[in-house]
Amino acid sequence: MALASPSTPRPYITCRQLLDLIYDYLEGTLPADERAEFERHMAVCPSCVHYLDTYRKTLRISRAALRPDAEEQDVLDSELALPEPLVQSILAAIGSR
């Protein structure tokens, strides 16, 4: 049977340390012990819970705002074709090679 742990609780990692670990946490590359400390902190710190959640949302939102299908309409609106002078300039540049 394991002995009871000492009465003094070990300190939590700080918010600063946790925020630095978010990238690896989301990549799944955090070593098991650091992951455990990460999750122990999260269990008692709503601010970091919100931080992680909004960090994740930032990724989704930026992808959604800029990925090709979101921009498709812009192209259809204004850039279905290159301006003719640019096309001619490109063809001339290639022709001179």
């Binding site: 700080t14 918010c15 600063r16 601010s47 970091c48 919100h50 959640d53 909004t54 949302k57 959604a64």
Partner: peptide
């Protein structure tokens, strides 16, 4: 002490 100086606020539901 390593705390966030500014507490992080949640984003409202439906931000995505």
């Amino acid at each position: 002490d390593g705390h966030q100086e500014i507490e992080t606020q949640p984003w409202r539901a439906g931000a995505d």
